[in-house]
Simulated scan of single mutants.
Amino acid sequence: MPETSCWHARSFSQMKLKSKQNSRPLNPITMNEKNLNYLKEGLKYQGFGTSLNAELERQVQSQQPEFRLQLQVPHHSSTMDYTLHFRRSDQADMYFFNKYDATLKPDDSAQERSQTFYINKNSGITAKEAYNLLGGRSVHKELVNQENQPYKAWLQLDPTIKDQHGNHKVRQFHENYGFDLEKTLKQFAIRELEDPQQKERLLRSLERGNLQQVTALQDGQEAKRFIEASPQYKTINVFDEHMKPVKRENILKEEPNQETAVRQQQKEKKQELPSEDQPEQKRPRRKGMAI
């Protein structure tokens, strides 16, 4: 039987009741809880931890159109100030974490640096990556272009160029730029590269923009050094334990010189030749046509 027959058989009161049930809005408390958990997850994933959760919950329950959260994090000899921006949707009872302002305040005479970083679906530059970018280092990220196609690139803030909002220009060094971090590290005598797990941790740390401590071999002795990726110049920067710049050539792997290489080749070639002390073995005479 066609569905229309069954539809006409229903009473008006049944249809009215069903229509009322379908149009009933979702429980706002349930929706807020889901939204609140999503926001908390985003803060944790972006590196802001859980210290803001209580204030976040209070602000969401207040149902204001928008609100901000403040956070200050110490980093060695400097401080990072974060202002996180949340906005309520015009179409639904939900809040979104859209962006945050980050300011690096060094304890020394260095000038403060600030930048606004945008968040899309709980994804973007993390709090620690913002610290590294404002500190002048580079971060390797997976991005999406205008055609919604993913690509990877190294990001670096240009300290000399700002837009009308006071944000630094973001420079990008794509994969076709020619910087390969793993291949670059192979040139240097770094102990951590000898172990696959330590090597992987080192690569991931440098890609996040960290200044990473390594054990380097210099003048035949092990020394503590700190390194950072420098994609613009397709190399790494090296510092000593006091954070003073060190010539990267000092920790390059020692390559054998040309004279040593020639001697090694002659030695290997000599080992392949028959010894003069050994009598030459007579080869059996084969039957056949002489040429």
Rank of each mutant, 00 (worst) to 15 (best):
L56D: 00
Q59Y: 05
L43W: 01
A54G: 01
R68G: 13
K44V: 10
T30Q: 04
E55F: 09
L56P: 02
L39I: 02
F48Q: 03
L43D: 03
S62L: 11
Y38C: 13
F67R: 01
Y38R: 14
V60A: 02
L36Q: 10
E33N: 14
Q46L: 15
E57W: 00
G47P: 05
Q64K: 15
E57S: 14
Q64I: 02
L43M: 10
Y45S: 13
L39A: 05
E41K: 11
N53R: 04
E57R: 05
F67A: 10
P65T: 07
N35W: 05
N37H: 10
L52Q: 07
N37F: 12
E55Q: 15
L69F: 06
N35L: 00
Q64C: 06
T50I: 08
M31R: 11
Q59G: 01
S62M: 09
V60W: 00
N37Y: 09
Y45E: 11
L56N: 00
G42I: 04
K40N: 10
G47I: 05
P65S: 11
T30D: 13
G49P: 08
Q61C: 03
G47Q: 01
V60Y: 00
N32S: 12
R58I: 01
K34D: 08
T50E: 07
S62V: 01
N35R: 02
Q63V: 06
N35V: 10
F67D: 15
N35Y: 02
L52N: 06
L69G: 12
L69H: 14
G47S: 03
T30A: 11
L52P: 07
G49L: 04
Q63N: 10
G42N: 11
Y38K: 08
F67E: 03
T30K: 10
A54T: 04
Q63H: 13
G42M: 10
Q61M: 03
V60F: 01
E33F: 10
E66Q: 15
Q64V: 09
N53K: 05
R58G: 00
L39K: 07
L36A: 06
R58W: 02
L39R: 03
M31P: 04
L43T: 04
E57F: 01
Q59A: 10
G42T: 06
V60N: 04
E55L: 03
L69A: 01
N53S: 08
P65K: 01
R68V: 12
K40S: 09
E33S: 14
A54V: 09
G42V: 08
Y45F: 14
S62D: 14
E55V: 01
Q64Y: 07
L36F: 07
Q59P: 04
G49N: 04
G42H: 02
N53W: 03
V60I: 12
E41A: 14
S51V: 02
Q63M: 08
N53Y: 13
Y45D: 13
P65G: 12
N32E: 09
Y38M: 09
G47M: 05
Q63K: 10
L39D: 03
A54W: 02
L69S: 13
P28W: 01
S51W: 03
L43K: 00
K34C: 08
N32H: 07
S62H: 09
M31Y: 01
L43I: 03
G42Q: 15
K40Y: 04
G49C: 00
I29A: 12
E66R: 14
K40L: 09
K44S: 14
Y45R: 15
N32Q: 13
I29M: 07
F67N: 11
L56G: 02
P65N: 11
E66A: 15
Q46V: 07
Q59F: 02
N32W: 04
Q63S: 12
